Simulated assay, not measured.
Amino acid sequence: MKYSRGYKVFRIFNGIFLALICIVCLYPFLNTLATSLSSNTSVLRGEIGIFPKGINFEAYTRIMKDSEFYIGYKNTVVYTVLGTLLSLTITIATAYPLSRRGLVGKKYIMLFFVFTMYFGGGMIPSFLLVKNLHIMNTIWAVILPGSLSVYNMLIMRTFFASIPESLSEAAKIDGIGDFRLLTKIILPLSKPIIATMTLFYAVGYWNDWFSALIYMSDSKKHPVTLYLRSVVMGLTKQAMSGNITGNDVAEVANKTVQGATVMLVTIPILCIYPFVQKYFVSGVMLGSVKE
């Protein structure tokens, strides 16, 4: 196939533009990784780009020796797994009825959900609600307030609506009820959107630190993201310990520990992407453009 000169020029500039975007996105990640693996002297001299110099694992060793890091990591895994399961259940249970044509009051229910996307009660009413529900310092304080994303629900609703009604009608003729219809037919056909929503919710719970900061005073229940926050702010024992002297050297050691903590917190969630990549694009596209 022959392409016009204009199209060839477009492809060249498009490739250059996408390459620049990749560089902009990858450089901070690679620089942080290189900093976490480099010696304090190299960091102090500003020699670190995307490759480490004076490779050592001292920063990772410091973090691995801290029990608070492991406690936070365990909490984050628990919050992410349980929160994602709960969010998926609520999202499916909300999106599926709203995708059916015969639902009474469907228009007004949709307006109610969309209204919450533009107007919220604010932080103080949310805090008072959580307090009055007596779930402060519990896992529910982190999971329940964000258990349903209206945006994700709308995408999933649109995906469900794209499934032919003839399948549902044929199943009902065979005597299959609504619950079995959902679990045996609709959900198996919805793997792309379920994988996409799983990724969205898992990343949200994994990165969340503000909810725990507000609703949890017990440090034993804090997620690892709060540990990362304290490291970045220079408040952890790892950033201040060690046989180092001088403010500059201490600051550099702090940067290497910060980089190592960022990598340990970021890499696990990045490992999920390869397993859901084949579903991701199709799930988002089918759930967002079909009306």
Rank of each mutant, 00 (worst) to 15 (best):
P268W: 09
G242M: 08
T266F: 08
S190C: 11
A260I: 05
L128I: 15
I272D: 03
M197W: 02
W206V: 01
K278F: 13
T84Q: 00
L37N: 11
M263A: 12
G246V: 13
F127M: 04
T138Q: 11
L167I: 14
L187G: 00
S38C: 13
V289A: 04
I12R: 06
K2V: 14
F112W: 14
A161Y: 10
G175W: 11
Q277I: 12
S42P: 00
E165L: 02
L26R: 09
I21V: 15
Y108G: 01
F113C: 00
G242A: 01
L98K: 05
L86A: 15
Y215C: 00
W140V: 02
E68R: 09
D66G: 00
F160V: 02
I135Y: 06
K106V: 11
Y118Q: 05
Y73S: 07
L86S: 10
M156F: 11
V78P: 05
V224K: 02
V43A: 14
A141Y: 05
H134P: 00
V24W: 07
Q238G: 00
A260F: 11
S4N: 14
A34E: 00
G175Y: 01
F159P: 01
L226I: 15
E68G: 04
T32K: 04
I185L: 06
R5G: 01
S282K: 12
T76H: 03
Q258I: 11
K221T: 07
D66L: 05
V24S: 13
M240I: 15
N137E: 00
N132D: 13
V231S: 04
P52V: 08
T158C: 03
P192W: 08
V252R: 03
K184L: 10
I244D: 04
I193S: 07
A239Y: 02
N132S: 13
I16D: 07
V9Q: 14
T225A: 10
E165S: 12
I185T: 08
